[in-house]
Design a protein around this nucleic acid. Sequence first.
DNA 1: CGGAATCCTGCCTGATACTG
DNA 2: CAGTATCAGGCAGGATTCCG
Lengths: 143, 143
Amino acid sequence: MKCVTHPMEPTMPTMTAAQRRAAEKADYDVFLAECPSRQLLDRLSDKWVTLVMVALERGPRRYSQLSRTIAGVSQKMLTQTLRTLERDGLVTRTVTASVPVTVTYELTDLGHSLQRVIHGLKDWAEAHMEDVLAARSTYDRQP
Amino acid sequence: MKCVTHPMEPTMPTMTAAQRRAAEKADYDVFLAECPSRQLLDRLSDKWVTLVMVALERGPRRYSQLSRTIAGVSQKMLTQTLRTLERDGLVTRTVTASVPVTVTYELTDLGHSLQRVIHGLKDWAEAHMEDVLAARSTYDRQP
DNA sequence: CGGAATCCTGCCTGATACTG
DNA sequence: CAGTATCAGGCAGGATTCCG
């Protein structure tokens, strides 16, 4: 398993999308620190990324809405997170020239595909909260 | 939607496991900073947690194996991550009293259920690497 | 081998002030 | 409203050393 970027070969029409995806996967390894996929996984495994992606799941949201929805986020981290998500093609940023100005963030198609995965994480956390709390009290009871 | 811990009511035998889970879910909100589920989601949305969970997916692993597999992790963070995963009931820690000592980590059933979700994140990162790289170069080309 | 303990740095956070 | 800028401080996380 190598970690290389793909030379731009002409797309082979004989491959299905699924086959191409499988071929691409084989060339990336998240365990290699230098691999782009590792760096991407590191970025995605971020609490603010997770919360923003979940907050955007039901459609476009304004900056101030996100700020209020995601309790505890600083302006700095919210803006920074939204910028990198925009750069990575996961959200779009739309500025409406009104007074005062309105800025709307929305998931792209790519963003939606990631959102589905991340939503699973949120569901898991909410569904298994009891189990985790029980495990903690068991663990903490021991010397 | 409130964020409360459940008073220990006797389990209602008339509820299915799925029903009980749905009822529990309704009481947790990851957007509230003080909610346990939010804090759990924050912990899970961590790059070392993600990588350790993926590294353990094929069965038990020794500390040194994990250390070598997960490139770039420090002993401190690996130990710290494994400890919290153990405390949260996601992995077991087994010490074999040999010389030198052998320590093995393995996913619990709860851990496996989370691992399936996290694996989706890894798959997404590896599968959509090209899309993200393309989006970045488009973004960076603009002033 | 698998850590624990220590020190130290840099980033995150929080607060405040200022713009288009 | 939706940021950018700046400065304080605290703590996450890296590097190093030592131990059963």
